[in-house]
């Protein structure tokens, strides 16, 4: 049966390059522009909180755009059947869902965290220059 199944198999992917030609170089250029954009955003000296959110959203959407370029053209998803959604949608939902599920506990605190890092921001007490290392050589 191995041998009998084989012809179907090869048939299944015999369409290498059968999909329409893609201007891969164009995609590459688009990806480079996106990368340049994200670096450009870094140079912004954003002051206001609202602006900050906007720029963060922009950077993330540029990353998503890049990911879509790679998935759609480099990984040929544009030319694949609907199975791509069956494999990728649950994964994507779970991946994003996991972060949202972690957020209430790890990302936010419903209590005042009692950790050294937070205490550090308080002014240090009882450390002054009592002994200004008065030792000569």
């Amino acid at each position: 049966m191995t041998h009998e199944a084989a012809p179907h198999d090869t048939h299944g992917h015999a369409d290498h390059g059968a999909h329409p030609h893609v201007n891969y170089f164009g995609i590459f250029i688009a990806l480079c522009i996106c990368t340049g954009l994200s670096i450009l955003f870094d140079l912004f000296d954003v002051k206001s909180g609202a602006m900050k959110t906007v720029v963060v959203a922009l950077v993330l959407s540029v990353a998503c755009a890049k990911a879509m370029f790679v998935l759609t053209y480099f990984m040929h998803l544009k030319f694949e059947g609907n199975w791509k959604f069956i494999i990728l949608l649950p994964t994507t939902i779970l991946a994003i869902g996991l972060m949202f599920a972690l957020a209430p506990d790890i990302g936010l605190h419903y209590y005042e965290p009692d950790v050294p890092q937070v205490k550090q921001t308080l002014p240090a007490a009882s450390i002054d220059n009592q002994d200004d290392h008065a030792h000569g050589h």
Binding site: D42, F44, D45, V46, M51, K52, A63
Partner: peptide
């Protein structure tokens, strides 16, 4: 890497800018 780059390199700096 496309996701690691903004998350590790770009966004923290932006968040601290304000």
């Amino acid at each position: 890497w496309i996701f690691l780059f903004p998350l590790l390199y770009i966004l923290p700096g932006l968040m601290s800018a304000a």
